[in-house]
Design a protein around this nucleic acid. Structure first.
Length: 301
DNA sequence: AAATATACCAACCGCACCCTC
DNA sequence: AGAGGGTGCGGTTGGTATATT
C-alpha cells in the first residue's frame, strides 16, 4: 500500500495562479495565518489548490517581504561563496539573503550566475588552447586589476590519484583578494580531494590534522590582509587560537578587516557582508585549507 | 515577418525529515 | 518503536518572453 496523496489530484487546479487566487490566498493568510496546516488550508480558504502549491505560492511569491530580481553584486558574491562552500543548499543560502527565496536563488544561479562566474573565471587563452595538463583559472570579479589573479590547478586525472598528488597551483597576483573570492573557486577543488592523504613530508613547515571522512590535510594560519604584514595582528592571533585536536573545522585564514568571534562554540567570521558568515558550522573546512595554502604560497614569495 | 533558439522563472514532483500519536 | 501525516527541500519541467537567424 502506497502513501496516501497529499490532496485529491483530480480536483485541484494546477498551473499558473490567477490574480484572484493570489488575492484569496493572501487575504486568508493575512487574516488567519497558516494555522500550522497547509494541507487543509486551501479548503478553508476556498481554493481548489493543493496545500503544497499554496505554500509554495505564498513563500515564493506572495509574502510581503519578497524581493524579485535585481540581484546586487554583493548578493552575487554571497551566493557564489556559499554555493562553493555548501553546494546547492538553497534554503540555507536564502536564509543569508533577506527577501530572497530558495527558488529564486536556484533559478538565478542556474540561469545567470553560474554562467557569469564561469565566464569570468576561465581565461580566453585556456578556452582556445590546451597547452598543458593544468587548468588555468582567472578570478576576475572586479575591474580592479589588483583584485584579479589566476591559479594553475592540476587536471582531475592528476589529483585523483592518491599518493601521487603534489600541489602545483600558483598565484600570480601581488595583492591577495578577499578570502571569499578564493573560496568560491577553490572549494570544489578541495572537495575533489576528499579522502586523499597528503604526503606530509612535502610540507615540512605545515601543521597537519586528521579530519574524519576527509583525510589528512595541512593548514596554515595566515592573515590575508595585504596591507598588514604584522604577525601580531589581532587576526593572526585569532587564527592561532584555533584548536587542532578535535573534529571542528578550523579557521585558517582571515582577510582584510575581518574579525573572529565565538558563537555557541562555533567559530564565526565577519567577512564584511554585514553578518557573521559561518563556513565552519557544518560545511567542512576545505576552502580554508586551500586558502591557507595559497596564502602560504604567496607569503613565501 | 516568420521561424527557431535561447533565456527566464513559476510551479510541480518526489523524496526525506520531523513530529505526533 | 514505528507508522503515518505534514512540511521543507532540491531537482526538474513547461510555459512565456526575448533574441537571433
Amino acid at each position: 500500500m502506497g502513501r496516501a496523496p497529499c490532496c485529491d489530484k483530480a480536483n485541484v487546479k494546477k498551473g499558473p495562479w490567477s490574480p484572484e487566487e493570489d488575492a484569496t490566498l493572501k487575504n486568508y493568510l493575512q487574516k488567519h495565518g497558516t494555522g500550522g496546516n497547509w494541507i487543509s488550508l486551501p479548503r478553508k480558504a476556498g481554493l481548489k489548490r493543493c496545500g503544497k502549491s499554496c505554500r509554495l505560492r505564498w513563500l515564493n511569491y506572495l509574502r510581503p517581504d519578497i524581493k524579485h530580481g535585481g540581484f546586487t553584486e554583493e548578493e552575487d558574491n554571497i551566493i557564489c561563496a556559499l554555493y562553493s562552500s555548501i553546494g546547492s543548499r538553497w534554503s540555507v543560502i536564502a536564509s543569508r539573503l533577506p527577501g530572497r527565496t530558495d527558488n529564486d536563488l536556484k533559478n538565478y544561479w542556474n540561469t545567470k550566475l553560474k554562467k557569469k562566474m564561469l565566464g569570468g573565471k576561465i581565461t580566453d587563452a585556456k578556452r582556445s588552447s590546451n597547452i598543458n595538463s593544468s587548468s588555468d583559472i582567472t578570478i576576475n570579479n572586479s575591474s580592479d586589476p589588483s583584485e584579479q589573479f589566476s591559479v594553475s590547478i592540476p587536471e582531475t586525472e592528476t589529483y585523483n590519484n592518491p599518493g601521487n598528488y603534489s600541489p602545483c597551483f600558483s598565484a600570480n597576483c601581488d595583492t591577495l583578494p578577499p578570502l571569499m573570492k578564493m573560496e568560491m573557486s577553490f572549494q570544489q577543488y578541495y572537495r575533489d580531494l576528499q579522502g586523499l592523504i597528503l604526503d606530509q613530508t612535502q610540507f615540512p613547515h605545515s601543521t597537519f590534522m586528521k579530519v574524519p571522512d576527509l583525510g589528512t590535510y595541512r593548514y596554515n594560519s595566515y592573515n590575508c590582509s595585504s596591507s598588514s604584514s604584522s604577525s601580531s595582528s589581532p587576526h593572526q592571533e585569532a587564527s592561532s587560537l584555533v584548536p587542532l585536536d578535535h573534529n571542528r573545522p578550523l579557521l585558517l585564514c582571515s582577510g582584510n578587516g575581518l574579525s573572529l568571534e565565538k558563537e555557541e562554540g562555533i567559530l564565526a567570521q565577519d567577512y564584511g557582508f554585514g553578518f557573521p558568515y559561518e563556513p565552519l558550522t557544518d560545511l567542512g573546512f576545505q576552502g580554508k585549507c586551500f586558502a591557507g595554502e595559497v596564502a602560504q604560497s604567496l607569503g613565501n614569495n
